[in-house]
Structures are given as C-alpha cells and as structure tokens.
Design a protein around this nucleic acid. Structure first.
Length: 551
RNA sequence: GCCCCCGUAGCUCAGCUGGAUAGAGCAGCGGACUUCUAAUCCGCGGGUCACAGGUUCGAGUCCUGUCGGGGGCACCA
C-alpha cells in the first residue's frame, strides 16, 4: 500500500461518511488528503491530519471526527491499525502484506517507477545557463546547468514535454568588445579598457589565426569582423562541449542576433504597440512595464534605432509562445533578479499571465571553498573558475550532485576538498555506494542462481518496513520536486533512502549463508533489493548522476 | 533610499508549502566485521529555529517591523 492508495482510501471513507449522513461537509469531500510519514516512531507507518482540517467545517471536534474515520478505515483491506492521537491525528499502521507489495510494484515499473501524470500534456520551455559567448562558462552559470537540467528531467518524469534552451546573446556592444579584445591580443597589443582579459582570450586569438592565417594582414575593421565571426563560433563550440561534458545537452541554442535579423523583434514590438503598451519619448520607444508592476517603463528601441537588450527577450518569449509552450521558465542568477519585474511586466503586456505562462527562477550565488577558505575570483585577472575546472577538481557526478542538493534560494559554499573526497562525508558517494552495494548483491544472487520472488507477507522486519515505505515515497517526491521546482528534494530523498537501505542491509541477511538452503524470505528480500536498485538508479538519473555498479 | 534571497546544533544544511517531543550529515566520545562491498551500522552529548509583535485550536513555516549577511537597482548586454 502506497501513500497515494492510502489517501484514496481515506477519501473513500469520507465519501461514505457523508453519504450516510454521519458527517456533513459543506465544501464537499476533498479529492486528496495529506498522508505523511510521521517523524516520531510510535506514530504508526503513516499519519493524516484530516480530522484536524475538517472537524470545524463538519461542526464537530477533531477527536470525534477522527473516531468516525478510524472506525471505517479499519475495515479497509491492508490497514492493520488506526489510532487516534494528540489533538486528532490518525496514526495508521499498514499490514506487512499490503506494504510488501510495493517491492513487486517497483520492479514491475522499472525505469518508469517514479513517473506520474502530474504535468501530462504540458509543454514546458526551460531556458537556462545562457552565458554570454564571450568566455568559457564559469561558476556563476554552472549552478543552473546542474539544477536546470535536473528540473527538466523531473518535469519529463512527471509527464511534460520539455525543451531545454540556451539563449546566446551574440548581439550588441559586448560582442564588439569581445572581438576588439581578440584583435588586440592577436597583434600583441594590450587588452582594451573595457575589453575581455584572461588567458583564454589569447588562446582563442591564436586559434582564430590558426584557422584564418590571413587575418593578421587585414585592416583592423575587416580583421575585427573575422574575429567576431570565427571567434564567437569557436566560443560557442567550446561552451557546448563543456556543457556536453557536464552531461547537459540543449535542444535549442537560440541566437539573439537571429531575432534581430529575421524581423522577429519588429513583429514583437508591433504586437505590443497594437496592444497599446508602447509609446515614444526622447526619440526612443518605451514599453509600459510600470503599468504591469515594474518600477519604471523600459526602453525597447533605443534612440539610435537599435533594439535594447529587452527587445530580444520580447521576441524570444513570443517565439516560445508561438511554438506552443504554455509554460516558459527563465533561470537566472541572483545578480539578475532586478530583471524579473520587467520580464513579468513584458509577459503581462502581451496579455499573458505572469507566473503561469512565464516563471522566473532565481538561483543564489555559489562560492567555492578550498580548505575552508573562499577561492577569490576575478574576471579581469582571468582567475575565474570555469565549469571544466570544477569538473576536473571533483568530477561531474559530485559537481552535479553538489549543485543540485541545495535549494536554489540560498547561497551555497562548496568545499572542493569535501566533494572530492571518496568517503562518507561526501553525500554523493554515500548514495552511490548504496547503489554499488545493491548491485553487488544482485550479482552474487545471479551467481547463486537465486531469483527474486514476491512474498510480501514475509517482509515483516522493522527495517524492511522502513525501506518499503521509503521506496513507496519516490513518486510523491518527484511530483513535489516538479511542482515546487525544487530538484534538491530528490537528492535529500536519495540520501534518506540510501540510509534506510544501509540499515536494512545491516539487519537483514539477503543471500543464503554457506550451504544454507535458499528460502522464500531470501527471494522476497532479493526483490526488495532489486526494487531499491531501481529507485536509487532512477533518482540519480533525475539528477544526471551516474549509478555505479561497482565502487 | 528602494527591490530580491538568506538567518535552524560547534560546522554544512533538511524540515514534505500551518501539525505531535524541531531532524540529518560532519566534527567529538564510545561500540559493531572468520560469510552478501565497514566508502557501512549502533549508542551518547549538542537548540531562545536572529529578535519583537501579530494571525489561530496550533507558527521554524503565514503577516508586519527591527537587526545581521549576500545580491541588485542603465537608451550595458
């Protein structure tokens, strides 16, 4: 019996009580009720607070209401005991047989276990990273690479169709500065005042020369164009490669420049003008963002006739909507949070619903520590930590796990020494080790010719019960992670489930010892182990972290 | 000045969107391997949930304010 089934059963009881006139619920019977795993041992396998929630509406007190529910709930198949506790909680114990079914259910579902239809039919657009192609991806962009991709996997698991998109800001002044910097360094001249510094600029300049040896002989104006085209293209490739090595591949790499050249920007601006949300002032065209909650109105066409940065975003947003995405996510670093209000206003200006059609997720900063001391970074000095540096220091699995393990709302301090450790201090190894241990048992069982079998009623050990309940929790955790846009819930869940497995392993012998004759209990436990493997592997996969067979 | 995020055990953080006696890991101390991976498990200690009000049967969680830390407030991208 899973929490969902229990919830359904309780709803059934409530419906029966209303039908009989035993209780009256003015707002009707709820479609789902909260079923949680009590923190406290002795409070049953599951607990619900329905009585506390509904008693007032039913015109009675919580304990009486709980009594009515308990009486009927005890009759339900698979329910072992129902106790009323405290102010009116219902503590429910599930029969071993009903609980043990979970192992077979998980194994039957296999890779699909954890899936749901929470977001079935939804087309979700995820825009993240989108670092400028003026340098390698550094630590600022890497958080969303890990979390955004994980969120995509989670949405897919809950039934959505997901497009991962990277928006290349390859239009405007900073690309000019970038190409000027390349040109300067190619000639051995100092980096321009507002240019880009660092070793990678020199390397890239040389690479461009390697591909276009004639470039040094060209006049500066023409040479700059070559550096712009070839240099930016090379930077694109490097960024894509870094992300690919990080396990993140985007479905769409969208170029801002394209929006300006294709007339998409003009069309988007026309649309907003038709809707009465633009006006001219000081030779520029403004969007009435203040009307929709922004601090002030924003320029979309500058007085020099060029589109502002926002104009590209307008056109891109419209493009996504026209491609059928009803939910567009943009994931930004905390240093861009000031941009949220105008993007939301833009969404409203198009007649869309902010926070529904457009959601903006803000990820706080990531600080790297080594030996407990912050790594000082300077973009100017070129001492930024790049995504590749992070991978080199701690590996892809640890990097992705470490970044996805915390809520995006808080800044994180990642201690590189800790995450590089191959020991239990390191949460990713704790979870992966559990998976390796599971895999080892399954290998040994295969060698013994022992096959798993379903004997749910035999899984009566306390640690078996805890593990079964943990496994049953997985679909709810995935759904909650999707609904709250919080992938870290999956990581935390995996750590708890790994702990539950380790405890089971310590208390319950799975394989026959020595010459011992295999029993149904061995086979039943083996099925539980197989189910655990599926949950750990599926969960790690949602985070883009590998599930090793051996460690 | 205005806006966003954070403040929970010595440290790093959870807390299932208002529930029961606030939980993990690390660090400290003490235990457990002749047989499935000890990269594990078990036990002990450790708290004014920053502070002050408010909302209600009930607040770490919601509201207001204060303090502290971080990040922002362009016809730059």
């Amino acid at each position: 019996m899973t929490p969902e089934q229990l919830s359904t059963a309780i709803v059934g009881v409530l419906a029966a009580l209303t039908d009989d006139g035993a209780v009256t619920l003015p707002d009707g019977v709820p479609t789902t009720v909260t079923v949680e795993r009590p923190r406290q041992k002795g409070h049953g396998d599951y607990a619900t607070n329905v009585a506390l929630q509904l008693a007032k509406k039913a015109g009675t007190n919580p304990r009486d209401f709980a009594g009515l529910v308990a009486e009927r709930l005890r009759e339900v198949d698979g329910i072992g005991a129902v106790d009323i506790a405290g102010p009116g909680f219902l503590n429910i114990t599930v029969e071993a047989g009903a609980q043990g079914e979970v192992a077979a259910d998980v194994v039957a579902a296999g890779e699909a276990y954890g899936a749901s239809n929470t977001f079935a039919g939804e087309k979700i657009n995820l825009e993240f990273v989108s670092a400028n192609p003026t340098g390698p991806i550094h630590i600022g962009g890497v958080r969303w690479a890990a979390v955004g991709d994980a969120l995509g996997r989670i949405f897919e698991k809950t039934g959505a169709t997901v497009s991962r998109e990277y928006y290349f800001n390859d239009h405007g002044a900073q690309i000019d500065r970038f190409s000027s910097s390349l040109l300067a360094r190619a000639h051995g001249r100092p980096t321009p005042e507002d240019g880009y510094g660092g070793q990678y600029v020199d390397d890239l300049a040389r690479a461009v020369i390697g591909q276009r040896p004639d470039v040094l002989g060209l006049p500066d104006e023409e040479a700059r164009e070559v550096f712009r085209e070839v240099g930016v293209e090379m930077m694109f490739d490097e960024i894509k490669q870094s992300l690919h090595d990080f396990g993140v591949d985007f479905d769409v790499y969208f170029h801002e420049d394209e929006l300006h050249r294709s007339g998409a920007v003009e069309k988007a601006v026309e649309r907003l003008t038709e809707l009465g949300n633009t006006y001219e002032k000081d030779g520029a065209l403004w969007l009435r963002t203040q009307k929709f909650g922004d601090d002030k109105d924003r320029v979309i066409i500058k007085s020099d006739g060029q589109g502002s940065y926002l104009s590209g975003d307008l056109a891109y947003y419209l493009d996504k909507r026209n491609r059928g995405f009803d939910r567009c996510f943009i994931m930004l670093g905390a240093d861009h949070h000031g941009y949220v209000a105008r993007l939301m206003a833009m969404c409203s200006a198009f007649g869309d619903e902010p926070h529904v059609n457009l959601e903006i997720l803000i990820g706080q900063m990531v600080n790297l520590l080594r030996a407990g001391k912050p790594l000082r970074m300077s973009k100017r000095a070129g001492t930024v930590v790049r995504i590749d540096d992070l991978v080199e220091a701690i590996g892809v699995d640890a990097a992705r796990y470490a970044l996805a393990r915390y809520t995006s709302d808080s800044t994180i301090d990642l201690d590189l020494d800790l995450w590089a450790k191959r020991s239990s201090d390191n949460p990713v190894f704790y979870v992966q080790y559990a998976h390796a241990r599971v895999a080892s048992i399954l290998r040994n069982a295969a060698d013994l010719g022992l096959a798993p079998e379903s004997h749910p009623e035999l899984l009566t050990h306390e640690k078996e019960g805890e593990l079964l309940r943990a496994l049953a929790e997985f679909p709810r955790v995935v759904a909650a992670a999707a609904q709250l846009r919080e992938p870290h819930r999956v990581a935390r869940y995996l750590e708890a489930t790994a702990a539950s497995y380790h405890r089971f392993y310590d208390n319950c012998r799975v394989l026959p010892m020595g010459d011992e004759e295999p029993s149904d209990l061995h086979r039943a436990r083996l099925l539980l182990v197989a189910a655990t493997r599926i949950v750990l592997a599926n969960g790690l996969d949602l985070l883009g972290v590998s599930a090793p067979e051996r460690m």
